[in-house]
Design a protein around this nucleic acid. Sequence first.
DNA 1: TTGAAAGCGCTAACAC
DNA 2: GTGTTAGCGCTTTCAA
Lengths: 328, 328
Amino acid sequence: MTAGSVRQMRLEDVAKEAGVSRATASRVMSGSGPVSAAVRDRVREAARRLDYRPDPVARALVSGSGFRLVVAVVGTTAQVLEDPYVDRAVAAAAQAGAPYGVGASLQWLPRQAPRLDRLAEDRSVRGVVLLNTTEAALEAVPMSLRGRVASIGIGSRWVPSFDVDNGGGAAAVLRHLYATGRRRIAMVTGPQWMPCAWRSVESYQGLMRSAGLPARLVAGDFSAGTGHRAMRRVLRRWPDTDAVFAINDATALGALAALREEGRKVPDDVAVAGFDDIPFAALSAPALTTASHPVSRIVGAAATAVLNQAPGPPNVVFPSTLIRRQSA
Amino acid sequence: MTAGSVRQMRLEDVAKEAGVSRATASRVMSGSGPVSAAVRDRVREAARRLDYRPDPVARALVSGSGFRLVVAVVGTTAQVLEDPYVDRAVAAAAQAGAPYGVGASLQWLPRQAPRLDRLAEDRSVRGVVLLNTTEAALEAVPMSLRGRVASIGIGSRWVPSFDVDNGGGAAAVLRHLYATGRRRIAMVTGPQWMPCAWRSVESYQGLMRSAGLPARLVAGDFSAGTGHRAMRRVLRRWPDTDAVFAINDATALGALAALREEGRKVPDDVAVAGFDDIPFAALSAPALTTASHPVSRIVGAAATAVLNQAPGPPNVVFPSTLIRRQSA
DNA sequence: TTGAAAGCGCTAACAC
DNA sequence: GTGTTAGCGCTTTCAA
């Protein structure tokens, strides 16, 4: 249909077309440096006419800026990369980067030795988005990476953080459980080492304490499998449990399955609530009560901040609201 | 901890260290052109000693090859990008590209006008992986993109295809339904325009015809929402339906919810089977019988093929096996 | 087999 | 304000 254009236009062509030097054309196109209004219009018009689009590779070379955004996921094993949450994050980064001509890479960061210096030295790397961030990972951020890292989770003096309001969301869910008469509320947490899961646990502990109720904590690891096992453990240790708050929906769905197997009615015998509002939370039986978690927006914001080198506020918190369904 | 290295080593440094010219060092590092064994070893040793890593940006500039892999998803609206299946695909591409220093970008390709020429001309683009591929999209592949496109779904003379064995997987599921006594089997399909969903439908029609049974087809769109609606439609039109095969798990889970609301027992009254074996297929109530679909492996293979410019077989088909659970 | 030199397309000092 | 010039780090002719 369209004739394949013979050759991509270069800045030189635009400059010639507009009757100016390459430097001036560059100033116009990159929007930096002084140019007279008349010349600017002339160059822009020429660029439009020739359908000129600057070569991002050449730009990257001269500016030394790199061209890919690495999503680095802290985890005990490379298995973390199989979490649907990671998929969502990467897709969001890939989408946010597209207009900038920047792609997303996915990489595992061993929890025991989260080395970021290789990434910092890699000239193809434009910036890094940290997932499941730990203190150790934050400390491993080398100087040369400062200003082009963002963390989904905890941040530091040098690393801006973007996260959902874990504490607020958890509190909303727990208040709902309490308001509907639940008093023997257990919680299935995430892995101990993951700071982003602490707030929820603190919320739980805070509310239980202020209500004068004993805490019933069991550790999980964000997976449905451990949600299932953790639920069985809860029932064994505290058979009279009448509600469970799971650190995320996957865990909650696992718990739901365990309760079903045990013949406990949800929500009549035991109420179940999760966190995240993943697509299938609405489809479980009963449909899962949970708290919203705008992962795409969060990661998109983090990616955009890195790409723009925007200083911005050091901690951006996205609200989480209660999603009432049938399970609680 | 580690002292930030003052400056990245350049090819020049390696050349000097090895006592050769930059050109020779380049020949060694890029592995092209004639070099004596002695010199090769000397240069390699020097590179190792200096911890030299070639700058991918400079390489891209000189070779004009681009540095991002675009996952282009055909769809009626940009909403297609919200499908978890897309997330998985992008994550797989991002992971496959990482060792090559290539990132993944995500982009919507309007079904009505799937233009690929812009991507072809974009010098930052190394290659393209097509998702939900249509004939129109294949025809829109410009000459300049040949050899660096792959399709997840149908392929063409110029575009190698990578896909799961939709026909085989569907047949396995349907044979299972038939073998367990189901005779009034309905199917909820995908959108009509999506060729990658046709094979499953053909399998369904073929098996029904050969068994002398009438087809009961209803169109969905891969979403749980339409799975729900389609199921109600099925029950209204053919109240005696005793099995449903859904084009994918999301649809099947929607159907499951609809059956629950209608008070039909699964699998006693109606058997339900899906396709994909998504993580939550195992968690539904009852757990979903389905067929496996190794999305990550498929997209990883496609991405790798594009990055390697590997000619390879034009059509790679990944097997799909029946996953027996409770719903059928 | 090796080296010298010319770019890839762009930006940014530095002059004017 | 605008043009000239020197690179960014690498590959690749072209000679030797």
